Simulated assay, not measured.
Amino acid sequence: MYAGRGHAALVAEDGQAWDAVLLVRYPSRAAFARMVADPEYQQVTHLRTEALSEAVLQPTSAWG
């Protein structure tokens, strides 16, 4: 189980109607930034975008 404090969404549209949630943990925000800046990642990121009608990227900090 996970509980944490939400931070300002990095990607979100008004009126989100979620039907699924995926929780992913990265070693650090810097590691995530390196991943999304990687040219190989950027070549395939369109597949994720095309597969989703809506997406929210919500950073959190774990309680405790």
Rank of each mutant, 00 (worst) to 15 (best):
P27T: 10
V24Y: 02
G6Y: 04
L10I: 01
A31K: 15
T60F: 15
G4D: 09
A62E: 13
V44Y: 14
V36E: 02
A55V: 05
G15P: 00
A12V: 06
S61G: 13
Q58V: 10
S61M: 12
A62D: 09
Q16E: 09
V56H: 05
A8D: 13
P27Y: 10
M1C: 07
H7S: 06
M35Q: 14
R29V: 03
L23C: 08
T60M: 15
Q58W: 06
E50G: 06
D14A: 15
D19F: 01
V11S: 03
P59Y: 04
A30Y: 06
G6L: 04
E40S: 07
E13V: 03
E13D: 09
Q16W: 02
G64C: 04
A17Y: 00
G6N: 07
A30F: 09
A17E: 07
R5E: 08
A17H: 03
G4C: 13
M1N: 12
T45Y: 10
T60A: 12
V24G: 01
S28P: 00
M1S: 15
D14G: 08
W18G: 02
L57M: 11
A37C: 06
E50P: 00
W63G: 03
A37W: 04
H46T: 09
L10C: 02
L22M: 08
R5P: 03
L10S: 00
A8Q: 14
A17M: 03
T60V: 01
H46V: 10
M35C: 14
A3F: 07
W63M: 15
D19L: 07
Y2L: 15
G15F: 01
T45A: 09
D19V: 12
A62S: 13
T60K: 06
R34G: 01
